[in-house]
């Protein structure tokens, strides 16, 4: 069973559809015991960091997520909330990844919208994925590069396209919206 975290952030339907198509059953939940016993947990997210974090705290989900032992995948805002701090809403995050989330300087178009590739360090998450493969990004804030960075994309400046620490994985891009290569990445995560 793959648990998809339910909180006040947007569109989880597409994540659910993508996982179901790969033959896994899913549950969208904010129930502690279901999250703890799931094989994998996906922490999706489109939305605003400040209000999303407040919602997680109200439900006590911040502590639950940090204590998870199985593989966890944060996507987009989910990834940003797993960092120590976000400039969006001046918000403290979960602090799983030791890096900060900042707003893109207005040197080029923001949001960073569209398909972009990344250079990656070796990770099981990227098996059968090449450096020329493009993934779908849409974001105005980015996570700074840190020791947990496993993929770097350059837009306005180099930033963390993916992060990993212990059982926690995260991508700034949306694998569920990235056609075949995105499906491959989700497959890789589900096999962990």
């Amino acid at each position: 069973m793959i648990a998809i975290l339910k909180y006040n952030a947007g569109n989880v339907t597409s994540v659910e559809n993508a996982i179901n198509k790969l033959g896994y059953s899913t549950v969208i939940t904010d129930d502690n015991s279901i999250l703890e016993s799931a094989d994998k947990v996906i922490f999706p997210g489109v939305g605003e960091a400040g209000s999303a974090m407040r919602h997680l705290k109200e439900k006590g989900l911040d502590e639950v997520i940090k204590a998870l032992k199985q593989p966890v995948l944060g996507i987009c805002l989910g990834m940003q909330l797993m960092c120590t701090y976000s400039e969006e809403g001046d918000t403290l995050g979960l602090g799983i990844f030791e890096t900060q989330v900042k707003q893109f300087p207005p040197k080029d178009l923001v949001p960073h919208t569209g398909w972009n590739n990344f250079t990656s360090m070796k990770s099981k998450l990227f098996e059968n994925i090449q450096a020329r493969n493009d993934f779908y990004f849409v974001h105005s804030y980015y996570a700074e590069i840190c020791k947990e960075t496993i993929a770097v994309t350059d837009y306005i400046l180099p930033f963390s396209a993916a992060l990993k620490k212990d059982n926690f994985y995260a991508t700034q891009f949306h694998p569920e919206k990235s056609a075949d290569v995105g499906i491959q990445l989700l497959k890789n995560f589900l096999k962990l």
């Binding site: 339907t13 597409s14 559809n17 993508a18 779908y136 849409v138 919206k177 990235s178």
Partner: peptide
């Protein structure tokens, strides 16, 4: 829109 979302894995 529901049907599209179920079938389409691009934005």
């Amino acid at each position: 829109v529901n049907r599209i979302a179920a079938e389409i894995n691009i934005p």
